[in-house]
Design a protein around this nucleic acid. Structure first.
Lengths: 117, 117
DNA sequence: TACTTTGTCAACCTTTTGGTTGAATTAATA
DNA sequence: TATTAATTCAACCAAAAGGTTGACAAAGTA
């Protein structure tokens, strides 16, 4: 009997495998949005956006907040940690220690600025 | 007419969306291997491993080195940088600055040890 | 040369994916 | 209350994914 395939959309890694879903995530990192706001930005059909959001909801990358007729979708960055952690195995290949320290210090500066808002 | 779907295996992000491919990558990070070495480790069919490797080759995450009858597959970590870079947008959500500095320093230590081998 | 080993490639099958269309649901508004 | 707006849900479709099987190719070995 043929082995049944893993349902790819039930996994954080495959959820971000889809380019449209990455674009949606990039928008929701900026701020929470409704489906139609996303439709306006990307000019995809509304059910298409809804379907991708429901995949992201299933793997908990986004959550839903109801407000009247509207549903606001917000990012849940914690759910993406497995990806970040998986990527650590390649850290040693990326740039010199000095480059990394440099990146790190720049990162702290940016963070400082953001948290002042 | 229906819009044709993007071929997901022609993209680094979707290439790592498949769990088996992630496992293959994890092995090849340790050292270059032949198909049959990977078959022995994972107990998947040989064509299955071959097919996944060919996807990884297509997106350049692994390269092939021929030696007699054997073909050694090796990881090309550079190709995974787009993922690392994409993940940066979430850095600000992950732990305190102190946690990150701590992780960073541990990382340097581990790197130092590895490079002594 | 014949056989074995290592491995790909092509063909096929089933399930999943991503998309569409249209009906249903829920909440605000005229 | 009827209408409009915001959105999901179900049904359907074509293409792609992942797996298998079997044929083939290339390199070493008896």
């Amino acid at each position: 009997m043929p082995m049944s395939r893993l349902k790819t959309t039930h996994d954080v890694f495959s959820a971000i495998g889809e380019p449209k879903r990455r674009l949606l995530i990039e928008q929701l990192v900026i701020k929470e949005m409704t489906v139609n706001e996303l439709v306006d930005i990307f000019d995809w059909s509304q059910p298409t956006v809804s379907k991708h959001l429901s995949v992201l909801k299933k793997v908990k990358i986004v959550s839903e907040r109801k407000e009247g007729r509207f549903r606001y979708y917000q990012i849940q960055p914690d759910q993406l940690r497995p990806i970040q952690e998986w990527m650590h195995q390649f850290d040693k290949y990326w740039g010199s220690t000095m480059d990394q320290l440099d990146n790190y210090l720049n990162q702290i500066q940016v963070k400082g600025k953001n948290s002042e808002q």
